[in-house]
């Protein structure tokens, strides 16, 4: 499962960021695919991006005059979330892939969580509400226009996949980089460095898209199921889980990114990842 996931992540990232002309010329794709959003955090200013970022799209709609409910982005959230939940984070997010790769570097003693995890894990909800939500509604830019606050002040995916390739290949943009760019670059470097030691720190503590999809984990079509009756409570799943989740938590936790490590590790085969045909998270498992 681990190797399959890595292959899927790489292929997905290449396909959704396959506009090679953009990388070579410091430009971005401007075709019709950008009417729709991809499921993961994927900056639409990445030179290779073929579709839109759902979090960027949310802020673009909130940046309109007055307040209008952003129905289109809610639609994408419900569609992707109901089908996949945080499977998107584990399998279909380019920035998640980047953090996964960095965590493989054999430097430092690896840790699954930061100290004060039980408090810090709510950071992503604060980012969603305060930056992507209220920030995009009320913060004003230099020309008194509303600003996409999450993209502007925090998003490390935009810095890595958008800013660095664009500034590297476009001299005009490079000449305009100022304090804000260096703030975002510093944040990016801190998150990337932390990723070598801690498993996916951005996903665990800061990603507003993870906060959205986490809500769908309980009832999404793709599920991880734990069968209590067959469990020997050896805790092999907890040891294998990169997020340190207990077997009771795996099915329903908004933190689970559906990586499948628990299912691979379970010696009693009582954890399965697959498609739910039932009515909710409490449905028992049946082998097909």
């Amino acid at each position: 499962m681990k190797r399959i996931r890595l292959i899927v992540q790489i292929i997905y990232t290449i396909i959704t960021n396959g506009y090679a002309y953009g990388f070579l010329n410091g430009k971005i794709y401007q075709g019709n695919l950008k009417y729709v959003c991809v499921p993961g955090l994927n900056c639409y200013s990445c030179p290779g991006a073929l579709a839109s970022c759902p979090m960027g799209a949310l802020q673009a709609l909130l940046n309109r005059r007055g307040f209008q409910v952003p129905f289109a982005v809610l639609g994408f959230f419900f569609l992707f979330g109901s089908l996949l939940g945080r499977f998107v984070c584990g399998w279909l997010c380019p920035f998640g892939l980047l953090q996964d790769l960095l965590h493989k570097i054999p430097l430092f003693r690896k840790k699954k969580r930061l100290p004060l995890h039980h408090i810090l894990k709510y950071g992503k909800y604060a980012v969603l509400i305060l930056l992507a939500g209220a920030g995009s509604l009320f913060l004003l830019g230099g020309n008194f226009a509303k600003t996409p606050a999450f993209c502007k002040y925090l998003c490390p995916s935009g810095t890595f996949f958008g800013a660095l390739p664009l500034l590297g290949s476009n001299a005009l943009l490079r000449s305009q980089a100022g304090l804000l760019f260096f703030w975002k670059l510093g944040l990016l470097l801190a998150i990337l460095l932390l990723s070598v030691k801690i498993y996916r720190p951005f996903c665990q503590y800061l990603c507003p898209l993870g906060a959205v999809y986490g809500w769908f984990n309980r009832f999404s079509l793709v599920q991880v199921r734990w069968e209590r009756e067959q469990c020997t409570f050896c805790m092999a799943c907890k040891k294998a889980c990169p997020l340190d989740l207990e077997p009771e938590e795996i099915s329903v936790s908004p933190e689970c990114i559906r990586c499948g490590a628990c299912a691979d590790a379970c010696p009693a085969s009582c954890i399965h990842m697959g498609i739910s045909a039932g009515k909710g998270a409490s449905a028992p498992c049946q082998d097909q």
Binding site: I28, Y29, Q30, N32, K34, Y35, C37, C43, Y44, S45, A51, S52, C53, G56, A57, A60, L61, R64, A72, V73, G141, T147, P148, C151, K152, C155, G158, T159, G162, A163, L166, L167, L173, Q176, A177, G178, L180, F181, F182, W183, K184, L185
Partner: peptide
Amino acid sequence: TVIFQKAVMICLECIGIG
């Protein structure tokens, strides 16, 4: 259309310039 118009222009805020 709003999403498209935003996504086909280089987002200066996203890349730390705007």
